[in-house]
Design a binder for these strands. Structure first.
Length: 901
RNA sequence: GGGAGUUUAGCUCAGCUGGUUCAGAGCAUCUGCCUUACAAGCAGAGGGUCACUGGUUCGAACCCAGUAAUUCCCA
């Protein structure tokens, strides 16, 4: 087989992914092994793969592959959610192209189009995940509107309703006037926009008794505003004045004492409203007079309830004004705003207009400005369920990684608000509530059951199913998602089935911190409510993928690369490595293509190391030459395994990857292979090595492939199957290999080789600074003061430093370039004379450093309080430092003395 | 406005219970090399008042307080 000079990922990736599928390696069924389970955070069925998914799913795949290689029964359940509003938008767009309007269709007709769309286009994202190597059990792929999952939604709705945890009521919701549905807080994107702040004057009505004795002088105090018979409010939404229910002032506000108990007239429509007092009003914000519009502002709504104010809703569902507005009926809210401003101006009650920056909510799906709107909705009570869900996290049954999110989690759970679970859409599970002709309603799974309930409710026993009308709305998509870890294993319909008992609770959940509350927290609530158990043990929260300028990646900025393009360019392994390199848990990731390039280069390094070994052939006549090196690398490898294990246990994936990277690149390629590789023999096609070296090296390489596999599944599998490793059975694959067990670590050998590496570096430095060619051999003499046995490493030293031999000396070698490693002295005798001045300078600098060091050590040791207070091992360590420094100082001083001769 | 976090090399980040003259890694930069595995590479090198100010301590990047900048969450 001829091997290309660089690694070509493309064929390897397609080939091995299908092979893994054919062999059923991703498939999991319950057995006697320990399970390891991850449920995917179901991506939106309309979605396409973006960088966030790429990061999130790479992490999941690394965890799953590693668990699989640790002999666990690894199960990664994939799937998508039905994303009501996003999907409806897609379907409406599709219909529009065919000239059909949603309003022309019945619910059933619309839904059949929606399913058509879903079958055709939905779930593209799952296929894209395969490109990055995701080892999901695809046979388990679930969709939140699958029959069983939908049933679970309906059943839990009814269950919670019967428990009093689901209720119907009028509340303020985020209203999307374009989508004509309520949306969740999380689907509202706040943006700072430039607005105008309108100062509007409301006429103050005098009380009868005060007629003729107006204390007008007092009222003209500030801002040049005409305050005589008026009060002034500031608002960004003048079109809502028709919905005003009161003006509120702070009772402590001395400027407005005269307004207490008064009434004012709303401009243009001349409706009378009271002035109310509440400390809620910030005196120094705006004018200190606050218009209260309970139907169109959340805070005003609360204030309205407190003061028993009427709720006047002047907006239609589509954002136009209704007849309650009494003027501008039918106008869009924004058109109305402009017109009102003009009308106020003409009426002479618009005192001034200022530029003003404020936060405005936009719908994530339709980009329409969100309207806080009162409406009749279904809600799920949170407080009761939040308590145990909070405890699981606080007492450590569920770990959030990184831990800092525990604070935020607690804060949210302690201030949880009820969850609006109804949506004015068709795509989703229809709310199982039926309305009686008299306006009462019942909650039941089927219309027949509903009828039974209805008959209990009303004396009218002639009621028929046709008389019942089912609620038009559907349940929020998140009401499906919160059941996900249970429903994917059919844990609602069949709560004691083998699968749920085996896989649940799942192990790890990998998701983004922005959905900690409304998804993760709710899954924990559902886990407790429906199974009395946590849904998962660890929640790994990934950061947000940003561009290198720190901006969030978004379509509108166009700063997000297409992950599939990246894979095309750098290979899936390269991109995986690139994503992981720079992403410590929970921290945002400043993405830069150069990380992927680094990943690709790493793959290439592995490829070439393989090529080198592949070019070797055993020569039985050669005696074993590299026992020390082999023992060293074996120790070093085991040491890395311990380190990597530790990082994984802490979910420090980027550190685990970095440790692997350094082991492979630095220790294996740069040191081990250089130590053992045969010197080039001319005209020989295959380089000859002894048997021990080749066998050991091949085994090392195979172990390296194993530890690389979770990070770089494709290249590791590709090389695994090379004939270098001998014949392999069809199922003998890297993906299902067992991770190497941790073996012995010879620490003495490790420190010996670390010293050796420093010696080699020093000799190379001598070579570099004297501009001696790499090919010219140098002599080296060692005066060992330490216990290190350099004879053991002699041949390695000769090879790596390109020496013509090693001498052992008892005394200094005069006239040679010298250096110190540890406390041992080394001499390189060169042809040319040593530059005495330069050498003197170098040694003097070293002496200054060492004496400074010694001084600081001595200062500590002479300090009685240090000796008394510090731990004994720390004091011992200082004593050792002192001894070492003294030895080195003596050596350097000798060196200087020798130079002077 | 309330809460949480962050601030260490040009960039992205480590630095666990304070203790090597402790300031580290990767990338980038610079210098020299196309040395038969790899220029997607090899051999070297430089680079930081650990945001600022004070405190605690024998000893502070690390603990405490304040200040500044910045991010996120909630309103």
């Amino acid at each position: 087989m001829s091997i290309s000079k660089t690694y070509q990922p493309k064929q390897a990736e397609d080939k091995w992914y299908s092979y893994w599928m054919e062999q059923g390696f991703f498939r999991s069924v319950p057995d006697e092994r320990e399970p390891y389970t991850i449920v995917i955070p179901p991506p939106n069925v309309t979605g396409v793969l973006h960088m966030g998914h790429m990061l999130n799913n790479t992490i999941q795949d690394v965890l799953v592959r590693r668990a699989r290689m640790k002999g666990k029964n690894a199960c990664w359940v994939p799937g998508t959610d039905h994303a009501s509003i996003a999907t409806e938008a897609k379907v409406v767009a599709m219909l529009k192209e065919r000239g059909i309007a949603k309003t022309d269709l019945t619910r059933e007709e619309f839904l059949s189009y929606a399913w058509e769309w879903k079958e055709k286009y939905g779930g593209i994202i799952l296929d894209q995940l395969k490109k990055l190597g995701a080892s999901c059990d695809w046979e388990r792929t679930k969709f939140t509107m699958d029959p069983d999952l939908s049933d679970a939604v309906i059943d839990t709705f009814i269950h919670l309703y019967n428990k009093g945890l689901v209720y119907r009521g009028v509340r303020m919701v985020n209203w999307d006037p374009q989508g004509k549905t309520a949306v969740s807080d999380e689907e509202v994107i706040r943006k700072e926009v430039n607005q105008k702040l309108y100062y509007i004057q409301y006429k103050v009505l005098s009380l009868e008794s005060e007629v003729g004795s107006q204390k007008s002088d007092k009222l003209t105090q500030d801002s040049g505003l005409k305050t005589k018979d008026y009060l002034t409010i500031a608002t960004t939404r003048p079109e809502t004045i028709m919905a005003d229910a009161a003006i509120c002032i702070n009772p402590n506000d001395e400027r407005y004492v005269h307004l207490h108990g008064k009434k004012v007239l709303i401009p243009l429509i001349d409706r009378e409203i009271p002035v109310i007092l509440d400390e809620y009003v910030t005196m120094d914000f705006g004018t200190g007079c606050l218009k209260v519009t309970p139907a169109h502002d959340l805070n005003d709504y609360e204030l309205g309830i407190k003061h028993n104010l009427p709720v006047i809703d002047i907006l239609n569902d589509d954002g136009t004004l209704n007849d309650k507005a009494t003027i501008l009926i039918g106008e869009d809210r924004f058109a109305a705003r402009k017109k009102i401003a003009v009308m106020l101006e003409e009426a002479g009650v618009l005192a001034k207009v200022e530029e003003y920056k404020s936060q405005v909510g936009y719908s994530e799906r339709t980009n329409a400005v969100i309207e806080p709107k009162l409406s009749m909705q279904w809600f799920c009570k949170m407080e009761e369920m939040a308590k145990p869900a909070l405890d699981y996290v606080l007492n450590g049954d569920i770990k959030l990684i990184p831990e800092k999110f525990t604070n935020t989690y607690r804060h949210w759970m302690e201030n949880v608000k009820d969850w609006c679970i109804s949506r004015q859409l068709w795509w989703g599970q229809q709310i199982p509530a039926w309305y009686l002709p008299n306006g009462q309603y019942v909650v039941a799974k089927t219309v027949e059951e509903a009828l039974e309930e209805a008959i209990k409710l009303t004396p009218d026993s002639r009621l028929k199913t046709q008389d019942l009308r089912q609620d038009e709305d559907v349940v929020d998509t998140w009401f499906s998602s919160w059941l996900w870890p249970i429903s994917v294993f059919n844990g609602f319909k069949d709560p004691e089935n083998e699968e749920i008992n085996y896989y649940y609770p799942t192990n790890d959940l990998v998701t983004a911190p922005e959905i900690l509350f409304f998804w993760v927290a709710r899954m924990i609530m559902a886990g407790h409510e429906f199974r009395g158990q946590v849904p998962f043990k660890n929640v790994y929260l990934t950061g947000i993928v940003r561009d290198k300028l720190g901006r969030k990646m978004s379509k509108s900025l166009g700063n997000s690369p297409d992950p599939l393009d990246l894979i095309e360019k750098f290979g899936a392994d390269g991109v995986r490595v690139g994503m992981l390199m720079s992403s410590p848990a929970g921290n945002d990731l400043m993405f830069d293509e150069s990380h992927c390039e680094q990943g690709r280069n790493f793959a290439n390094k592995i490829w070439n190391a393989f090529k080198l070994i592949k070019g070797w052939e055993i020569d039985e006549s050669l005696s074993s030459a590299n026992t020390t090196t082999i023992n060293w690398f074996s120790s070093r490898f085991n040491q890395s395994l311990v380190e990597i294990d530790g990082y994984f246990n802490q979910f420090r994936l980027s550190d685990a990857l970095m440790a692997t990277y350094k082991l492979v690149w630095d220790d294996f390629c740069a040191w081990y292979l250089e130590m053992v590789k045969p010197s080039y023999q001319e005209g020989v096609e295959k380089q000859k090595v002894d048997k021990e070296t080749l066998l050991a090296t091949v085994e090392f390489f195979e172990n390296i492939l194993k530890i690389l596999h979770p990070f770089m599944p494709f290249i590791s599998e590709e090389l695994w199957h090379d004939e270098l490793f001998g014949e392999r059975a069809a199922t003998d694959c890297c993906i299902v290999a067992n991770l190497p067990a941790i073996g012995e670590i010879d620490t003495q050998l490790l420190t010996g080789v670390e010293t050796l590496k420093q010696v080699v570096t020093e000799v190379r430095n001598v070579r570099n600074s004297k501009q001696i060619k790499p090919k010219d051999k140098l002599p080296l003499a060692i005066k060992a003061n330490s216990a290190i046995d350099y004879k053991l490493y002699e041949s390695i030293l000769i090879k790596l430093a390109n020496l013509d031999g090693v001498d052992y000396a008892d005394t200094k070698i005069a006239g040679a370039t010298a250096f110190i490693v540890g406390t041992d002295e080394f001499f390189v005798a060169l042809q040319e004379n040593v530059d005495v001045d330069a050498e003197h300078e170098r040694l003097t600098a070293e002496l200054v450093y060492l004496e400074g060091f010694l001084k600081s050590v001595n200062a500590k040791l002479q300090n009685e309080r240090f000796v008394q207070n510090a731990k004994p091992e720390i004091v011992d360590n200082e004593l050792k430092k002192k001894a070492d420094a003294e030895t080195k100082i003596a050596i350097v001083k000798d060196g200087l003395a020798a130079l002077a001769k």
